[in-house]
């Protein structure tokens, strides 16, 4: 039978493998997002502290992740660590390390931004109303901070999910790599890349769109 069009995706276990690849993508992204959320909170609070040295370290960390392409960091950890220290990390571990290193700094900066965007008079007014500092945080400051932070944090999550596509370069068979392997099976079929990439686009869309819509909805609701 002639292979053509979308049928190539359903030949053998191709589609199952594509979904398996998507799970690898999601696994890396979810672990990264969870770690970045927790560590990012700490990172943000350190950036807000009055101590200079920890603040400078965070600043340097943030600058490094902002001007280093993620792919360079992935190569540094996956190949570089093996070459330099003999640490033979597998691709997925390397990916989680790099993306968490990046996500923590970005998340931290969001936390810093959200906290410092709350005007000083909010705290002062709360005090004037007789709230203790703890009550002021609980009822006045934290709710406002979370509202400003959450939509941005969710947007960061979708960026992390999309960036995981890079890990195919360090021997992680995620959804994009599986897709390329399927194209490879039908390399003489000119429309193969179209169908495969279209499917991958739809898969990414199905995951990122609801998340992004949630961020938009929250933003509007809390504006």
């Amino acid at each position: 039978m002639q292979d053509s069009g979308i049928s190539i995706l359903f030949k053998g276990v191709n589609f199952q493998r594509l979904l398996g690849g998507l799970w690898v993508t999601m696994r890396i992204a979810l672990i990264t997002i969870a770690l970045s959320a927790v560590l990012g909170l700490v990172f943000g609070l350190v950036m807000l502290s009055r101590r200079r040295a920890p603040r400078a370290i965070c600043r340097a960390w943030l600058e490094i992740v902002r001007f280093m392409p993620q792919l360079v960091l992935l190569y540094l950890v996956y190949f570089g660590f093996a070459r330099l220290f003999g640490w033979d990390l597998d691709g997925e571990t390397s990916a989680v390390i790099v993306f968490t290193f990046w996500g923590t700094a970005e998340m931290g900066d969001l936390v810093r931004g959200a906290v410092s965007s709350i005007p000083l008079h909010q705290r002062e007014s709360a005090a004037a109303l007789g709230l203790t500092p703890l009550q002021a945080s609980r009822y006045v400051l934290i709710p406002q901070t979370v509202r400003r932070l959450l939509p941005q944090a969710i947007n960061l999550s979708t960026r992390i999910i999309k960036t995981t596509a890079l890990v195919k370069m360090i021997n992680v068979t995620e959804v994009l790599k599986v897709g390329q392997q399927i194209i490879g099976q039908f390399y003489r079929l000119r429309e193969a890349p179209f169908w495969v990439y279209l499917t991958i686009f739809i898969l990414y869309f199905l995951i990122c769109w609801p998340i992004s819509a949630l961020a938009g909805w929250l933003e509007k609701r809390w504006a």
């Binding site: 053998g12 276990v13 493998r17 068979t173 390329q180 392997q181 194209i183 490879g184 099976q185 390399y187």
Partner: peptide, 15 residues
């Protein structure tokens, strides 16, 4: 090995 360069190194439809 390559995993997407048929017929030299590729993953077939059975994985």
């Amino acid at each position: 090995l390559f995993s997407d360069k048929k017929p030299f190194g590729y993953v077939d439809e059975n994985g």
